[in-house]
Nucleic acid binder design. Structure first.
Length: 144
DNA sequence: GCCAACGTTGGC
DNA sequence: GCCAACGTTGGC
């Protein structure tokens, strides 16, 4: 799960313990959020920064949360087509698990994984939420 | 700051 | 339904 650290980074999550992962406005990413189960683990990825990197681990603690920002006219994520009766955007609540002592830069990830196995290293991929298969997840943990 | 790689919008 | 124009993401 990606976030720009200037907006919300791993340190923010460590401080707040949990957060609602709001602001996802891409249907494919939303669908992946929708498949998440309570207890699932997720990597926290810092994007649009130097260096882009996996920086920690989170746990999904609540699913199918209506993203409140879609109704907030003052939010950049406001969606005029969404109503409380028919919300368009659901998300999850995540809990801080770990900030890795050593973050795994995109450069390192590219050296260790193929785009077919791990979407994060695929060129041009802009999805902010991506699935990671178990084998890759274990290999990532082993890299730390 | 540039630009590739998308996703979305809207005219037709 | 097609597709050009436009907007956004995010690495570099």
């Amino acid at each position: 799960m990606k976030s720009e650290p200037s907006a919300y980074g791993i340190d923010d999550l460590q401080r707040e313990k949990t957060t609602i992962w709001d602001g996802v406005r891409n249907y494919q990413a939303r669908n992946i959020l929708g498949e998440m189960k309570k207890g699932d683990l997720a990597f926290f990825y810092h994007s649009n920064c130097k260096p882009p990197a996996i920086v920690g681990l989170m746990e999904i603690v609540e699913t199918s949360i209506v993203d409140p920002t879609q109704f907030d006219r003052t939010s950049p994520y406001f969606d005029p087509k969404a109503t409380p009766e028919k919300p368009r955007w659901h998300t999850v609540k995540v809990k801080f698990r770990e900030k890795f002592a050593q973050s795994l830069s995109l450069e390192i990830l590219k050296k260790n994984f193929n785009p077919e196995d791990f979407l994060v290293v695929k060129k041009g991929n802009r999805l902010s939420v991506m699935p990671v298969n178990n084998a890759v997840a274990k290999a990532i943990i082993d890299l730390i």
